[in-house]
Simulated assay, not measured.
Amino acid sequence: MNSLNILIVEDETITAADIQETLEKAGHSIITIARNTQEAVAAVKKYLPDLAMIDISLERSSADGIDTARELLSHHRMPIIYLTAHSEAQTFQRARETMPAAYLLKPFRQHELAFQVELAYMNQHTKNLQTSETLLLPINKGYEKIHKDKVIYLLAEGAYVKVYMAGEEKPYLLAMNLGYLAQYFSTANFHRLSRSLLINLDHVSRLERSQLFMHNYTIPINIPEGNRGDLMKKLAVVRTR
């Protein structure tokens, strides 16, 4: 993965140095080592780090690591990894409220630390992709912004994906795999009808036994028999008695 700019919030000098050495060996950059809330806030405002590793017990700070994390997140959204030598349930519940990417108990293994950093960033990146309302698609030697709610369906054809949009006469043709593109359409309104077709349920206009019709399209979509049950669970269907 790419090198990350990481903030370490740790007031134990030896521990902070060990973390820095481990992460730099993994290819990441440490923007600074903060020993209290004030130093951490200043670093976040200046550098906008990709991720922060925060010790919960900050004896040289006016606030502990959990309150520090809350303050940092009010200035800049990023994954948080907590480090602690304690495993009390009350502390964990407080930390949980800040929705951390990981919660590591000391002493931790060096390779475990590097793995958790990579997973935390990847999960946050994926979450951002999933919740974004717009995308920039590679179209006509550039990137064109689309709104995902206007996507009617995506159809795989060989090495390409056709993206059918509301208000567009012709689909966009993208040279990529549908499985790769589908990760950007993981919200509840998108449904993988088959290996080659991903539909937007908000654009369904009519449902028949083995066919599906989308808004503004007269050509029906065939529903694979084995996939009909999953589709019906996603649609609010008023059944006859």
Rank of each mutant, 00 (worst) to 15 (best):
I80S: 07
A102L: 00
G65S: 12
A85E: 03
F92L: 14
R96T: 00
I30S: 07
S62P: 02
A43I: 11
R60Y: 01
A34N: 04
A34H: 02
A52N: 09
R60W: 00
I56Q: 05
T84S: 13
L58D: 03
T13M: 10
H86D: 11
P107W: 08
H86T: 12
R35G: 10
I30F: 02
R70M: 13
E24T: 15
T37G: 10
L83E: 01
E59T: 14
T15F: 07
A16S: 13
D67T: 14
D18I: 15
E12N: 14
L104Q: 01
A16M: 08
E59C: 10
K106Q: 11
I56M: 09
E71D: 06
T68A: 14
T91H: 09
L83I: 13
T68Y: 04
Q38A: 12
I33V: 15
A43R: 10
T32L: 05
K45W: 00
A17S: 14
Q93T: 10
A43G: 08
T13H: 11
Y103P: 11
K106H: 10
R77H: 07
P107D: 06
R60T: 09
R60A: 08
T68N: 08
G27H: 11
Y103Q: 10
A101K: 05
V44T: 11
R35T: 08
M99F: 09
D67P: 00
E97A: 15
L83P: 01
K25N: 12
L83T: 08
H75K: 03
S87R: 13
Q38W: 00
I14G: 01
I14C: 04
A16Q: 04
H86L: 14
T13Q: 13
T98L: 04
R96D: 08
D11K: 04
K45R: 12
I81Y: 02
I33Y: 06
T32M: 07
T98D: 01
L104A: 03
S62V: 12
P79D: 03
P79F: 10
A43C: 09
A40E: 00
A52K: 09
Q90G: 00
V44E: 04
Y47R: 09
D50A: 13
S74R: 13
F92P: 00
S61Q: 06
S74A: 14
P79I: 08
A34R: 07
F92H: 03
I14S: 12
L48F: 05
P49E: 09
V41T: 07
R35N: 07
L104M: 15
I33W: 01
T98N: 05
M53L: 15
D11T: 10
E12S: 14
A95S: 11
Q90S: 12
V44K: 02
S87C: 11
K106W: 08
S74M: 10
E88F: 11
R70F: 09
H86E: 14
A85W: 00
I66V: 15
A40C: 04
D11P: 06
A95F: 00
S74E: 11
A17M: 13
T37H: 09
T84F: 04
